[in-house]
Nucleic acid binder design. Structure first.
Length: 283
DNA sequence: CACCATGTTCCTTG
DNA sequence: CCAAGGAACATGGT
């Protein structure tokens, strides 16, 4: 799925475009995507409501809506799963093949499309309660990370994927942060020294912040229908130069030279998922 | 046909 | 209680 940086950039893009728009209609093409179950209740809750805000929490998008000026706002949680996207398109334009849920907003339509339908749109926000701290917030300290890693015999890479330890890190940025910190993904989390944890904490924040900055700079094709590439999840805008493509340093680069020491990047499998690292730099 | 894929949840086994 | 592994979800790319 899009991880914290991709969701953050998407939220910054969408928030001002949604603000003040009223939901005229909701079409649910894939009922399994919505929570709680029940297309009727879902539509009744949303049709007529107005978007008043959009923020990110971990990998979730949190839409805020209001039914009228004297009603209090409520939340709609969005999660993009592995292949989900959200974008606005002009009303009455053809929907993508895998449109799961569509919000008619008058002149524009908000599309949640997802080829694999692992994503969710939910009026139940309890999932947020299970999330750990936001890694880019000042409140997230190296001590928080240390506590999350302490006394665990799990590999540090796997601990970083635990959303209750830190929210928003996925398979790509776990590998990238460990490369930046020069730590082996296979190290037992609880055996890292305090200095190593601090270093990982700094690397994690730097890698995520740089990815957000990069995604905010690169010209993206937000509608992106049909694009599926490694370019920050959405495709490159038409006509944009292609010098943006180099970005990830180890993820997906098995066999290629390490950007630091030229040793071949290795791919291993941890808990059924690929991890990429430099066996020379990362100890 | 084989294997791979930016995620989460649930189940079983040790 | 914890950890590990696998399956499920579902579709497409190589």
């Amino acid at each position: 799925m899009p991880e914290l940086p991709e969701v953050e950039v998407l939220v910054r893009h969408l928030a001002p475009l949604l603000e003040g728009r009223r939901v005229r209609d909701v079409q649910v093409f894939r009922p399994r995507v919505i929570r709680p179950v029940g297309v009727g209740a879902f539509r009744r809750a949303l049709v007529g409501a107005t978007f008043v805000g959009l923020t990110r929490r971990g990998k979730y998008l949190r839409f805020r809506l209001r039914r009228s000026a004297n009603h209090s706002a409520f939340s709609l949680l969005g999660h993009l799963g592995m292949t989900g996207r959200m974008f606005l398109q002009p009303a009455h334009t053809p929907l993508p093949k895998h449109a799961a849920v569509v919000f008619a907003l008058g002149p524009v339509t908000l599309v949640h499309e997802d080829t694999r339908y692992f994503g969710r749109l939910s009026l139940d926000t309890r999932a947020l309660g299970a999330l750990g701290p936001e890694p880019l917030e000042p409140a997230f300290t190296s001590d928080d990370l240390a506590r999350g890693l302490a006394r665990s015999r799990q590999a540090v890479k796997l601990r970083l994927l635990d959303q209750s330890l830190v929210a928003g890190i996925g398979n790509i940025y776990a590998s990238e942060a460990l490369f930046a910190a020069r730590l082996s993904p296979q190290r037992a989390a609880g055996k890292l020294s305090l200095a190593e944890v601090r270093n990982l904490w700094r690397s994690l924040r730097r890698v995520l912040a740089q990815a957000v900055a990069w995604g905010s700079t690169v010209p993206l094709d937000w509608r992106g229908s049909g694009h599926r590439d490694r370019l920050f999840y959405y495709g490159l805008a038409a006509g944009a130069p292609d010098y943006y493509v180099e970005r990830l340093r180890v993820y997906g680069r098995a066999g290629q030279p390490c950007p630091r020491c030229r040793t071949a990047i290795r791919r291993i499998v941890q808990a059924g998922r690929s991890t990429f690292f430099c066996p020379c730099c990362q100890r």
